[in-house]
Amino acid sequence: MQQLHTPHVVVVMGVAGTGKTTIGPLLAARLGVPYAEGDDFHPPANIAKMTAGTPLTDEDRWPWLDAIGDWAHGRAGLGGVVSSSALKRSYRDRLRAAAPGVVFVHLTGSRELIEDRMSHREGHFMPTALLDSQFATLQPLEAGETGVAVDVAGTPEEITARAVNALKDLPEPVR
């Protein structure tokens, strides 16, 4: 498998259960850059709310997004991959404000497929009960946002290959 190198900082985004934690490290390995797990940036209060089945508010998310943005800013020009739901345009704008060259890989799929995958994973704090709120909040990438949408049907290796191929067509990052 050929390893590519990129100066991009890539945010692997999407609703819970799309495979951000699986695809993120695979993508980072293919790109030859470090990976950071977005869930690790959540303060304990956010984890407790989600574990209890309570959706996060924007106010809950700001410190989390700022921490991810700080990590991405530190990787500017070096490249990196980090996972983050980044469900709203305002969340992505906040990440771009911290790290202007960031690009997004939006993992997409049917609600049925994602719910099925969520129901089979073990040890994760996000219950399937919050999936509807995730889809209700989701604002897909819009014109003017640098990124690609990648379907999550298939194996992790197939999804990662699609993401790598889609990223090849993106412009060089802004520094």
Rank of each mutant, 00 (worst) to 15 (best):
K20C: 08
S85N: 05
D70H: 12
A72R: 00
V11T: 01
G32M: 12
A76N: 11
T22P: 00
K49S: 09
I23F: 03
P100I: 07
L26W: 01
T54S: 07
W71C: 06
G79I: 04
V102E: 01
L27W: 06
K20F: 08
W71E: 01
T57M: 13
L78V: 12
K88A: 10
L4P: 03
Y91V: 05
L87S: 01
F41A: 12
E59M: 13
P34H: 06
Q2T: 15
L95H: 03
K20P: 04
T21A: 13
K20T: 06
G101M: 09
L65C: 08
G24S: 09
A97G: 14
G101A: 09
T54L: 12
Y35Q: 07
L31P: 01
T51N: 10
L4I: 12
V33M: 04
R92N: 08
H5I: 09
M50G: 08
D66K: 13
R96K: 08
S85D: 02
L56M: 12
N46W: 13
I23E: 02
A67Y: 10
P34I: 10
P34R: 06
P25E: 03
I47W: 07
D70F: 09
D40W: 02
G77H: 06
T22D: 04
G80I: 05
S83D: 05
H5T: 14
I23T: 01
P25D: 02
A45K: 10
A52F: 11
R30L: 11
S84W: 03
T51C: 10
V33D: 05
W71A: 01
V9F: 09
D39G: 14
D39T: 10
V11E: 00
L31W: 01
T54M: 13
P100A: 07
G14Y: 10
V11C: 11
K49L: 11
W71Q: 08
A98D: 09
T18N: 10
V12M: 02
E37K: 08
A28E: 06
S83Y: 12
K88R: 15
L26K: 06
A97K: 15
R30V: 09
H8S: 04
G19I: 04
V15M: 00
I47M: 13
P7E: 13
F41V: 02
